[in-house]
Nucleic acid binder design. Structure first.
Lengths: 139, 139
DNA sequence: AGAAATTTGTCCGTATGTATC
DNA sequence: AGATACATACGGACAAATTTC
């Protein structure tokens, strides 16, 4: 099989499928997810891909894995055992407001690179950080 | 080559080496890191391992990666570096835009605390960071 | 404008190390 | 000790975004 990833990446799709099973109760909280090899067989995906999907669920608090034991389903994002802080990211090109245009000494028609970091605690947004930089030369 | 990882994992070691270069100025903020293939050659590591190391730096805010372009060195984890590179700051209350209002789950009439950090290098603005929070912990 | 080269993103298959049961 | 499962690492391939010519 080649490597088609037209829409979402494979591991995104797999993560979504697993998340849905947890949400719907097919995989009850506190129970083990299928093993990596089982998921590998079911989704016809490589181990690394399965592990990326599980890693995604772990970062978002849906599961917790224990070394040498397995991966457990949690109650939900930041539901039961896990997480204090999470961090999401987004990047895009934006038109600077007057202040930014002045600081960077560019026209207001120019574009800046904006990165946004969202820090959550127990599922609540604690702070949002927006970083602005000049778009690297040549554009 | 086998896969020894006795002490620290290789991607930890590589990440540390790269972070050291950023901190010491060998790789100045805003400039590109060597390409993945260059790092592959230098560290004699597989590309996946290099990408793991870079991913570590990205999670901790040391670098930012752009598809098809490269990986840029940042100043450090967010606004952290109280470095000699001058840094101004300003504090004020602002009305959240729609996105911020949604993230913080507040009305658009509410006010958020905005802190602005301006980092200059050689007198030129390198980056502007704006942090938004609900309640100031210690104003 | 368009094609080629460069660079990061994703995926595959495999092998070995390490921790737990 | 053996079985199971996660962690790390290798190498190769194709896809997508960007830059360069």
């Amino acid at each position: 099989m080649p490597t088609p990833h037209y829409g979402q990446p494979r591991y995104h799709v797999i993560a979504d499928a697993l998340r849905e099973r947890i949400e719907s109760g097919v995989i009850p909280p506190g129970t083990l997810l299928p093993t990596e090899s089982a998921l590998t067989a079911e989704f016809r995906a490589a181990r690394g891909t399965i592990r990326q999907a599980i890693g995604l669920l772990r970062e978002t608090g849906w599961v917790s894995t224990e070394h040498g034991r397995g991966t457990y389903a949690n109650l939900g994002p930041f539901g039961s055992p896990p997480s204090e802080t999470s961090e999401l990211r987004r990047r895009r090109r934006v038109v600077p407001d007057r202040e930014l245009a002045t600081l960077f000494a560019v026209d207001e028609g120019a574009t800046l690179l904006e990165e946004q970091f969202v820090t959550k605690v127990d599922g609540n947004v604690r702070e949002v950080v927006r970083r602005y930089r000049l778009t690297p030369p040549a554009l």
